[in-house]
Design a binder for these strands. Structure first.
Length: 423
DNA sequence: TCTGGGGTCCTAGGGCGA
DNA sequence: TCTGTCGCCCTAGGACCC
């Protein structure tokens, strides 16, 4: 049995390029919400030395100097392109685990007589032809090794033809000696630093550490990773499951001390999170609200409170969820601080088919009818149109996200579909 | 002026009932 | 009845991912 990891190259930047081929060869960056920092870069932008998560305002000059094309994020477009890619991947094997918006694991069961390198290349070709998105394919006996193989496929695309397979022990050792420890899946900055101090430089060095040390210093998570890299499949193939947490959080454009502003934001977050909760047919029983001051301004007093409210009954009602969220906000809000960010997190998630009755508390039975109606109207329109009264429409300008450079939603809005003119 | 958002899993430590 | 211990559950915080 083999695992494949298919990863879209520079996904957001590639999506932009599909609809504007004149961008071929030109550096592209895509910015986070609020046009805050760089979250995706084309190869050319990477070569200019623009790091991941670079604050956009610090790189304005470089963008201009090198004629970098800047985009605000356009999740409607990326989500739709992702669905297209994933559905094509599903044609190559019935076992697929969508790992993120731009990555999927495939399970190759009973492919023993296949030339997997050729098969991997054909995946690349088909996805590119049907969607315009370039992908890299890594195939190996475990997920962590498939990640390494994927990196090799991408780094040496000319030689590998965008697909690389780790099959033999020799290939495994060679690949692990090649990869930097910090680039191994599951080794973040903290662990990389500690390991470097111990002269662990490559993935191979890591596999030479004693199990005991890894378990004691990096928990079972680290140990599982080590075994996976040794070629013993340890990381499973998870079926799709509903989220265990649902959060809606945003940084504000400007800092605020205004409780009314925060009340409105929290209502909106509660409403959005509840909508997503219902869309996966779930209820929640815990509502968490947090506030944050500006962590980039050390001269301002920090205050980052978090509070979780138990609802005592499972609910998917935006009214109930917002009621608890507002209570939490009232309890944690302190005047005199400059708030920069807030969020609502729903947890204690259960299927809404198995709602446990509570003798004393419960959701107003009318709510579920109202929620169903709201969901069906909003889904017909295609985006949220009906809101809670607490979400003040006329406040919109105060908090509206900065999105100066958003491209058209080419594939999800009739009025933004690209037009082709023939001469 | 301007620094994202949405997740997962694990561990330690406290409360609490058997 | 008092006290100690064990295990379960919960939460906070930290690590990681994209």
């Amino acid at each position: 049995m083999m695992f494949g990891l298919i990863d879209c190259n520079n996904f957001y930047a590639s999506c932009q390029r599909v609809f504007d081929p004149s961008l071929e060869g030109r550096p592209i960056v895509v910015l986070s919400n609020n046009d805050g920092c760089v979250i995706a870069r084309s190869q050319e932008a990477k070569q200019l030395g623009i790091p991941m998560a670079a604050p956009a305002f610090m790189y304005d000059k470089l963008f201009k100097e090198h004629n970098v094309k800047v985009f605000s994020s356009n999740y409607a477009l990326y989500g739709d392109m992702s669905n297209r890619v994933m559905s094509i991947l599903g044609e190559f094997t019935p076992d697929i685990q969508v790992y993120s918006i731009d990555e999927a694991f495939l399970k190759f069961n009973g492919f023993t007589n296949f030339d997997l390198t050729q098969y991997g290349r054909s995946i690349h070709t088909k996805v590119k032809k049907c969607t315009g998105i370039p992908v890299s394919v890594g195939i190996a006996p475990t997920k962590a090794l498939a990640k390494v193989a994927n990196r090799i496929a991408k780094n040496y695309a000319d030689i590998t033809g965008n697909a690389y397979v780790i099959e033999t022990e020799e290939q495994r050792v060679k690949a692990l000696k090649w990869i930097d420890i910090g680039d191994v899946w599951g080794i973040g900055r903290q662990h990389a630093k500690r390991l470097a101090e111990m002269k662990v430089r490559s993935g191979y060095d890591f596999t030479q550490l004693p199990d005991e040390w890894v378990q004691n210093n990096m928990s079972v998570v680290g140990l599982r990773l080590k075994h996976d890299l040794e070629g013993k499949p340890t990381l499973g193939f998870e079926e799709e499951h509903p989220n265990k947490n649902i959060s809606t959080t945003r940084a504000f454009r400007h800092m605020t001390r205004d409780i009314n502003f925060l009340r409105e934001r929290v209502s909106t977050f509660a409403f959005t999170a509840a909508e997503r909760l219902r869309s996966q047919n779930s209820d929640c029983s815990l509502v968490t609200v947090f506030l944050e001051t500006n962590r980039f301004k050390p001269e301002l007093a920090p205050y980052n409170p978090v509070l979780t409210m138990p609802t005592n009954f499972a609910t998917g009602s935006a009214f109930e969820i917002n009621k608890f969220a507002q209570q939490a906000l009232r309890l944690i809000f302190k005047p005199g601080f400059d708030y920069k960010k807030a969020g609502v997190i729903l947890s204690g998630i259960t299927a809404n088919t198995s709602r446990q009755l509570n003798m004393f508390h419960g959701e107003d039975p009318r709510h579920s009818h109202i929620m169903q109606t709201i969901d069906s109207i909003n889904s017909k329109i295609g985006y949220t149109k009906i809101m809670l009264a607490a979400q003040e429409l006329d406040q919109e300008d105060k908090w509206k996200m900065r999105r100066e450079w958003r491209s058209a939603r080419y594939t999800t809005r009739w009025d933004e579909i690209p037009e082709v003119f023939c001469r």
